[in-house]
Design a protein around this nucleic acid. Structure first.
Lengths: 128, 128
DNA sequence: TATTGTTATACTCTATAACTATA
DNA sequence: TATAGTTATAGAGTATAACAATA
């Protein structure tokens, strides 16, 4: 049942966000960088349960498209600090506007109380 | 959150059922054939949301390993009827014995009432 | 020596087009 | 002509190993 629900959400996501070129993965990456400017790739990968090499490949594309930039940390020159460019900030802001109608459409069979319950139960099973 | 929960269940599944060589996909396929002997590949694919060509590849492996057999329908010789062999029935029966402890472990953070609620809400979002 | 990030690469899963045999 | 099943193949997602730079 989890797989079927997730499939529905991903299919709906591609419909809703196709015009912006956002995927579930890139949306999540943008949102985390927006809320945690300077987050290193390693933290981002473990938070989103992505393998570092797979994340790096996505980050390379996002950087060469001009959506994010990488700064080397002053204190530890191995570490990378991820930031949104103005172009990237604009993209995720546009995406954020589609989020509420998207969630509403996916969760339409549930009341608002049930929607909160579902989120709470899922969060207990696998906390973010 | 759905993706993270599903990831947890799949990882737990591989741990629990590794000894039997069952995957989430093959478990579901065996269970559907067991409960619906003679089910055609097309119905199986749409029920489990698998593309027919991808399902066929799995069915080929399951058949050449001796777990299932294909019968041509008498009434429509294009149609295939899927059946478990005794070997396949034995395998899914062994798998079924692991199912309750597996679900219990994955859903440990929830009370029994909450477990039923979660299943009901997921089923409303994307009915089987 | 250990850690962060990166590259290269293989493997699984998923998607599309085209073919066959029956209807 | 249309349908059920199948094959071949391409693409996306995910995995591991090895390397460079820095600590």
């Amino acid at each position: 049942m989890l797989r079927l629900a997730q499939l529905k959400f991903f299919e709906g996501f591609y419909e809703e966000f196709a015009a912006l070129g956002l995927t579930p993965a890139t949306y999540a990456i943008f949102a985390v960088i927006r809320d945690n400017p300077g987050v290193p790739p390693s933290s981002l990968a473990s938070l989103l349960r992505l393998r570092l090499p797979n994340l790096i490949k996505i980050l390379n594309e996002l950087e060469s498209s001009g959506f994010i930039k990488r700064n080397r940390s002053k204190s530890d020159r191995r570490a990378v600090e991820l930031m949104l460019t103005p172009k990237g900030a604009k993209l995720i802001a546009e995406g954020a506007r589609l989020t509420e109608p998207y969630n509403e459409r996916m969760l339409a069979p549930l009341t608002e109380t049930e929607q909160r319950t579902l989120l709470e139960l899922l969060n207990r099973i696998s906390p973010l």
